[in-house]
Design a protein around this nucleic acid. Structure first.
Lengths: 355, 355
DNA sequence: ACGACGAATGTATACGTAGTCATCATGCCG
DNA sequence: CGGCATGATGACTACGTATACATTCGTCGT
């Protein structure tokens, strides 16, 4: 009675068609497709031949429906225009492709994590990698932590019971502070941002604490909080800082684009980098190594972070109730021309000192 | 007899459960979900209440299975590390989100278009936007042109019967040539690339033809073919060009990253841009406007191109057999500091002259 | 007030796949 | 040579949804 009306994908050959053509049952076709060993070679050949001839492709919806999984992973990134995210996506996509999974991407600028969480609950994706939460609390109420296949990448939310992977941003901030002080910088400034994200908060905090510990400190007028994390913000911030009676001789920017903005802004006002002003960024995006900026920055072990995030996510999909893991990887200070390519004097920054 | 084994998404509430709780039939629940007007307000309320209480989410696989569409669109981009592509993805993602579609992303570096085409044939996605074909012929044999829901964005394959959207790369190249000549540049060079993609070919060809027509021409030693389209290639290319007995006084690079590499390379060898050398890029990626480069370049109407591509794709999904469309949008020369911010003398480049 | 018509709701079904179980074929050993 | 174990295959079913069709309910007109 009921007629199907749904349009099917173009080449609508089903496993039943294959079965008929190969003179076997649909079950056997399914077995061949799933590489079940219990099929006689001759039969397998016959089926494979028909499969090839008909250019059969299994219906993904039916398969997902039956199997209860989509073989897709969702990824939420912040602003795609910030180079770190494309790099991250590229790594995630490559690794997922190798594992036979697809990648559905959302930009958190357009709706935050909600669409991704929704997709997770609908089974569109088997798991979600959240690399940014517009507002941390917003998605907390969306996802009951109950064994959800969610992993936070490059973002820590302490009171949220999901797997989390990040690099040690506190330590990254510390490294920069110790480096600048060890190299004799006297007037050190910080261009930060609205601390929506833990990463930014930690970078700033690690930096400040290290400065305090080293007896340098960060006077309020050497701190500029940018509205967003754009090049224009960096320019604006550096302009303010350079207008001070005693302008800084080194600036740490909590990400590379801010740093590049600061550098362009400083140069635009006639300052020379690094002769008059040192600038340090964070993330080591691709451009940072280009001649025009040649930016000293902190590099996060992106490939490993992505690898661990994916491992954790896939493990959780198989075992929802396993205890959650928080990974925190070490990162690396990359010294380039924006700080005169100058290495810190040996033993100046004792590695053991933390916090 | 047969037992279902597939793991279901966490909150496995079905429309049948809702029906039972709301004392209606499953069909009515479905009607409420699909906003069917033929439901009495009171009934609708009752169902909606239960839906909210149970935090029900429809099973996407079942829905896709039944409806015959996935509500997802596939996008193949070339290298995510080239800033044009994240920008494009951002635009595509935003527009698709507005239309209630998801975006599955593949990087053509890892498998070309094949995975996307496969996904299309399996019904994982309803349509595919191809922004790059590793090899044009490779995917031609994969997709029978038969009303496939495929649109080429920023890529033209003349003999392939699919919808295609691009900007006029021939004209872009022409504009640059005419601009440089009109501004009195005498020794004009070109940094191109391996012409796998029509875009690159057209930019080069438009440029060359215009130079020829203007009686300037492009001598072979002023042409450098880069292996890939990276910053390093640009540096390498400019180094070669500057080693010439008579180095160029202007270089057109077929994309911005090449141009930035060329600029950094030139500066590294002591040349001043624009005083000694003009440099022009193509694409107007975000960095191009930053102080360090301030690059004159050709801007493509990205938002419109994306909009048109999506429109064409969605239209085709509904009408597979409609005649194919090729759209070619005009682009714009953005003059910045890398060419001294110098406008062409009026009437120097007659707009009508083409080819 | 009764019939009739339309609105609202219920019933039943198919979509394509991957399983379970049943059945059939084959080969081996007693 | 027969029976049994093992391997190969077939028959059948459920998954959750959206719809066609059937049925019931409410309302309006005469």
């Amino acid at each position: 009675m009921a007629r199907a009306t749904g349009a099917k994908p173009a080449g609508s050959v089903t496993s039943h068609d294959i079965a008929r053509l190969a003179q076997v049952s649909q079950a056997t076709v399914s077995r061949v497709l799933r590489d079940d060993p219990k099929v006689r070679p001759a039969t397998r050949e016959r089926v494979l031949k028909v499969l090839a001839e008909t250019r059969y492709e299994p219906n993904a919806a039916a398969r997902a429906f039956r199997a209860g999984r989509a073989d897709s992973i969702g990824v939420v990134v912040a602003r795609l225009s910030y180079q770190l995210y494309p790099a991250m996506l590229e790594a995630i996509g490559a690794q997922l492709a190798r594992l036979g999974r697809r990648m559905i991407v959302w930009d958190s600028d357009h709706g935050g994590d909600a669409p991704a969480i929704r997709a997770l609950r609908q089974g569109v994706v088997d798991g979600v990698i959240l690399t940014a939460a517009t507002s941390e609390s917003e998605f907390l109420r969306e996802v009951p932590a109950e064994g959800s296949a969610v992993v936070l990448l490059n973002r820590i939310v302490a009171d949220y019971a999901s797997d989390q992977v990040s690099s040690d941003n506190l330590d990254g901030g510390r490294r920069v502070a110790e480096y600048l002080v060890a190299c004799g910088r006297k007037r050190i400034a910080l261009i930060g941002g609205i601390p929506r994200a833990s990463t930014i908060r930690d970078r700033e905090q690690g930096f400040r604490k290290a400065l305090d510990r080293l007896g340098v400190g960060l006077p309020p007028h050497y701190y500029f909080r940018s509205e967003n994390f754009t090049h224009a913000s960096g320019e604006q911030a550096v302009t303010r800082l350079m207008e001070l009676a005693s302008p800084p001789d080194a600036i740490f920017c909590v990400n590379d684009v801010l740093a590049m903005g600061a550098m362009d802004g400083a140069r635009g006002r006639g300052a020379r980098v690094p002769d008059d002003l040192w600038i340090v960024g964070y993330d080591d995006i691709e451009i940072a190594s280009w001649g025009a900026y040649d930016l000293t920055t902190v590099r996060q072990p992106m490939e490993q972070m992505v690898g661990q995030a994916i491992d954790l996510l896939l493990a959780r999909i198989d075992a929802r109730e396993a205890p959650v893991t928080h990974k925190c990887l070490a990162n690396e200070l990359v010294i380039r021309g924006s700080t005169g390519r100058q290495s810190p004097p040996a033993a100046a920054a004792p590695k053991k000192a933390r916090r």
